[in-house]
Design a protein around this nucleic acid. Sequence first.
DNA 1: TATTGTTATACTCTATAACTATA
DNA 2: TATAGTTATAGAGTATAACAATA
Lengths: 157, 157
Amino acid sequence: MTDVTYAERPARLDRRDPLTAQVLELFWMVSQAFFDNYDEAAARHDLTRQQAFILAHLLSGPKPMRSLAEHLKCEPSNITGLVDRMEARGLVTREPDPEDRRVKNITATDLGRASFEAVWSGLTFAAEPLGALSVRERETLRDLLLRMVPADGPADG
Amino acid sequence: MTDVTYAERPARLDRRDPLTAQVLELFWMVSQAFFDNYDEAAARHDLTRQQAFILAHLLSGPKPMRSLAEHLKCEPSNITGLVDRMEARGLVTREPDPEDRRVKNITATDLGRASFEAVWSGLTFAAEPLGALSVRERETLRDLLLRMVPADGPADG
DNA sequence: TATTGTTATACTCTATAACTATA
DNA sequence: TATAGTTATAGAGTATAACAATA
């Protein structure tokens, strides 16, 4: 697409002030590029986006299935199959919690952790669009993003 | 999550310089929140993310199926079912190109356009994280994002 | 009785491969 | 022969609902 995308369209379909509309559109474009980059990096290590999300969430320690469902914002019933597939590939383990045997604690294996770290390290987004900015500009961007980060989630990923 | 997410983790799993690692992590968190917001807005209008992407792409005019596949970065075979479902709901029309009858031109209907515009207008991302920034800060953010936008895609959406 | 996780079902999105109809 | 789109198939992710085990 050309300039039209973020210069003309928002004015037509957006009642927001032009500056906000433009920032929204630009942020969306860069975010999409980031997500594409993430998916590609995950695919290079035979992981789906959701599998990578789960491994990222498990970096800080074992988590019950319920926690994974909340993190992924999906129904708990889906986690069963998701963990099944990851367990079968040796990316995670599933063990009943000794204090409440209803709960299953999911833990990333060494392979799981290494896989996620390879995905995250493999993001070219850091070298490409971010690399176009100077140190001073990256500091400015960091400070602006700190103001935009949601209080709770989506957290790691 | 707490500060740990973007203060400690990158240093451990990232060989990038700390500033780049931090910006990467922050940008990822905000992007995830944006995507969540987009999915929610689309769901409120009974659209999937991919259906909304397609409608966005069609705002600038009719497009052949092949173009939709490129925009969505998926195999052309998937577009058939995607367009089938959208056509059945009156969101798009599908007509053979008079100049090359192999090509099917997909056009957003009034309902399709209105649906996407409702999704885009319904994004609370503009009011929430973006609203936390002053006009001056949004101008700064805009200028930084302009430097990061990929030359071609992902364009509209 | 409430909660955690599971199963069953149906739908959307995805890649692969074989097919058709045009060119 | 090459290209645009389709069909068939298998797999991943999703929501809903009914269920088992545990609390």
